[in-house]
Design a protein around this nucleic acid. Structure first.
Length: 726
RNA sequence: UGGGGCGUAGCCAAGUUGGCAAGGCACCGGAUUUUGAUUCCGGAUAUCGCAGGUUCGAGUCCUGCCGCCCCAACCA
């Protein structure tokens, strides 16, 4: 397991726990809509929600957000549950549906209406759109906005009961049609749908919309952390509005994180569905699909998915992870946990000429060089299957495998020397002939000689026939969404071959994964039958040879960001309050430029922005502070703490400096002690400095200043430091 | 164009009171190797989006700008 990064959500949870906001409880939720299968992107949300809950001793609810009956189906409910279980997460008894709460939500909606915070609107879809305004223009109020609440109440019940036509009415929140946040412009939160619901049947004829439903679900369930992806940032204000308007006491908090993007993959449900429907893949669980069902069928272990998500991290920057990164973790997981056997994916016959026809022996080989995964018997005979790509008529430079006259090691068996290669009329290799060296039994020679290469093999006698499905990535380009994604499909995403594995594979458990030596990781596909083995390739091994051959195709350098066109420095804008403060400080004897610098750089820092209304601090106070600076009583770093006090209450800056002990230290002996302490505490750096790394001067300056709690006189410190460092 | 976010190496990503720009992946060397794998050493790679400013010192504070993402569904 990797070391965990204390990312911003962990920090928030810890801060909440420290402040006792939720009494130390951590309750999260994973809220899929049952309208499709989960994909690798969802795995991130899954790991964050379930993982964090587990980590902080809380719990995570599985809640289906089933507020749109026309798009959803129970089929997906079961599929999603399976995928979550496969990843190893457990919701215990906390399985919920948004539809569980429809009664309560309707009651809360009535409360909102009674408070005058919601109304039934009769605008059509088009009218509503037209009246919403644009991002730069305010919308206009609906003519139904101010209808009496009694009327809305009555109409709302009609909506719920199916007494009004679909699309004829909505229930809207009464907020502000001019709000710069479009989500706040009187959003509809109930719409009429005469649809049969997969969970609650035909009980309801109007259903709540996401924003309204989601915050309430969280609230009803006592969720503390509502974690979702970035595109919901704009919705957070609405989330809080509903809860506040309803006067809910329990207030979950929404925090957003960036979703996972992966190269060579499309992740939108729409495209995934198209792939299935257009037959580009066999189904949602096609091993080339980025769905969890697909990854599972491919043979990826859930541990690898979890590790991947943890390693990718959690942040707020949109990002696209290289697929190779995921692939590497899939391999790493298998590398450490899976037995190794031999199998030939594209077989060609090897005949050992100096062995009798009926020769039969067996080797006892280990399943793993490091892990204790047992041993197996591997039969050996005159006729073997070897990999076609391990044979070359004319070996290229750097070749380490079989070629006429070359000697190689058959893994775990003998050295063999190629005596000839038979080809057919098309030049295709049909048979390789060789002689073996009986003295090399087990794979090593008493004379100490070592062949350049080792190849894998399977004895023809007793070999199990296998249909190999060699999967490769579904898309040929790193960004399939660039251009028409259909054009970017990889025509070679699946290669089917007939080959063999050693008989030991037949005795392994059904779900066992193996490394076929030198060929990659494989496991049995569900399409296998008792007499027809089908093996999926989960991942290849890293292949340094393949990489060495073709001219290295360097990734095209990313186009540089357009350099900012500098229009020259612009004068900083000063608010009226700031201007008058500077003016009065100037009148009280301070230099105007210094006053301005402090207002801009320090005051704004304290205030978190420009000062706009009645500032506590006065001109003569600022002037007094500047005087202390000019006199050398304090250094610049003391300005902010003094300002902080001055903003609270009127005071004489000199008194504040005295009270806080901020006076600048320029006394030589005190400085000298501080420098000595800093040098003594950092002997390595001192050695480096004396060895010529002069840039460490800044480092020591920092150490000394820290020693002096920032109060050192920079010039004096620098002088002493220079002297002591030599 | 209004609002909400985000810019640290090819990719992901730490960096929380301003003080030597973490780590992982990829890449390049070398060692080990009965898998051209694994493992182990070592290395290169960053105008911290840009430009000004404050400061002894800025990825971090201030100002201005640039780029990317999200929002104008009765989807979630």
């Amino acid at each position: 397991m990797t070391e965990r990064v204390r990312h911003f959500i962990r920090q928030k949870i810890e801060a909440d726990n420290a402040s006792g906001k939720y009494g130390g409880q951590v309750i999260t939720r994973f809220p899929p809509e049952p309208n499709g299968y989960l994909h690798i992107g969802h795995a991130k949300a899954l790991c964050i929600n379930f993982g964090l809950a587990e980590e902080y001793g809380g719990r995570c609810h599985l809640r289906f957000d089933d507020t749109n009956p026309t798009k959803e189906d129970v089929e997906y409910v079961e599929g999603i549950k399976n995928d979550i279980k496969w990843l190893g997460f457990d919701w215990g008894e906390h399985l919920y549906f948004a539809s569980d709460y429809f009664e309560q939500m309707a009651e809360d909606a009535r409360a909102l209406i009674r408070k005058g915070l919601a109304y039934v609107d009769e605008l059509s879809l088009e009218e509503m759109r037209a009246q919403r305004g644009t991002v730069t223009e305010a919308g206009t109020n609906s003519p139904y906005r101010d209808r009496p609440y009694e009327e809305s109440l009555e109409l709302f019940d009609k909506m719920l009961n199916g007494d009004v036509a679909e699309g004829s009415m909505t229930l809207r929140a009464k907020i502000d049609m001019a709000d710069p946040n479009m989500k706040m412009r009187d959003p509809p939160f109930y719409r009429v749908m005469h649809a049969e619901h997969h969970q609650v049947g035909d009980r309801w004829k109007a259903y709540p919309l996401y924003d309204y439903a989601h915050c309430l679900e969280d609230c009803y369930e006592g969720v503390t952390q509502s974690l979702c992806s970035l595109e919901f940032e704009n919705n957070r204000e609405l989330y809080n509005w509903y809860l506040a308007s309803l006067g809910k006491e329990h207030r979950p908090e929404q925090t957003e994180f960036a979703r996972l993007g992966l190269t060579y993959i499309v992740m939108s449900k729409r495209k995934l569905l198209a792939l299935v429907e257009e037959g580009a893949v066999v189904g949602w669980d096609d091993p080339r699909m980025p769905t969890l069902a697909g990854l599972r069928r491919l043979g990826v272990r859930p541990q690898a998915v979890r590790e991947f998500v943890e390693k990718v991290g959690v942040a707020k920057a949109n990002s696209t992870v290289e697929y190779e990164f995921f692939e590497g973790l899939i391999r790493k997981d298998l590398e450490e946990n899976v037995p190794r056997v031999m199998g030939v994916v594209d077989p060609v016959e090897l005949v050992i000429e100096n062995l009798p026809d009926d020769h039969a022996e067996s080797f006892d080989l280990s399943h793993h060089p490091k892990a204790d995964l047992g041993r197996r018997a591997v039969p050996f005979g005159k006729r073997l299957w070897i990999e076609r790509e391990d044979v070359a008529l004319e070996p290229p430079k750097g070749w380490k495998r079989l070629a006429p006259g070359w000697e190689v090691r058959l893994y775990g068996a003998y050295f063999v020397t190629c005596t000839g290669i038979d080809v057919d009329d098309d030049g295709k290799v049909v048979r390789v002939r060789a002689t073996y060296d009986a003295a090399t039994r087990g794979g090593s020679s008493p004379d100490g000689r070592k062949p350049k290469g080792t190849i894998h093999w399977v004895a023809a006698d007793g070999a199990l026939a296998v249909e190999f499905r060699l999967y490769d990535r579904l898309f040929a380009t790193p960004d399939p969404d660039a251009g028409d994604w259909r054009d970017n499909l990889n025509p070679d995403s699946l290669t089917v071959t007939s080959g063999y594995v050693e008989p030991a594979f037949g005795s392994t458990a059904e779900d066992v994964r193996v490394q076929l030596q030198r060929m990659g990781y494989f496991w049995r596909d569900d399409d296998s039958t008792a007499d027809a083995l089908v093996l999926n390739r989960i991942a290849t091994l890293r292949d340094g040879w393949a990489k060495a051959k073709p001219a290295p195709v360097k990734a095209a350098p990313k186009e540089k960001k357009a350099p900012a066109v500098s229009t020259g420095p612009k004068e900083a804008w000063l608010s009226g309050v700031e201007q008058s403060l500077i003016a009065s400080a100037h009148a009280a004897g301070a230099h105007a430029d210094t006053a301005k610098s402090i207002v801009l750089n320090e005051l704004r820092r304290e205030l978190g922005g420009p000062a706009v209304d009645n500032l506590r601090i006065e001109g003569n106070e600022l002037a007094g502070l500047i005087r202390l600076l000019d006199e050398g009583t304090i250094n610049r770093s003391a300005v902010r703490p003094v300002l902080e006090v001055l903003l609270e209450q009127p005071a004489n800056p000199a008194d504040v400096v005295a009270a806080l002990g901020l006076a600048q230290v320029s006394d030589t002996s005190a400085l000298s002690d501080a420098v000595d302490a800093a040098l003594a505490a950092n002997p390595d750096e001192l050695a480096r400095y004396r060895g010529g790394e002069k840039r460490l001067m800044g480092f020591f300056m920092g150490q000394v200043m820290r020693e002096l709690q920032g109060k050192g006189d920079p010039k004096a410190v620098s002088a002493v430091l220079r002297e002591k460092l030599g």
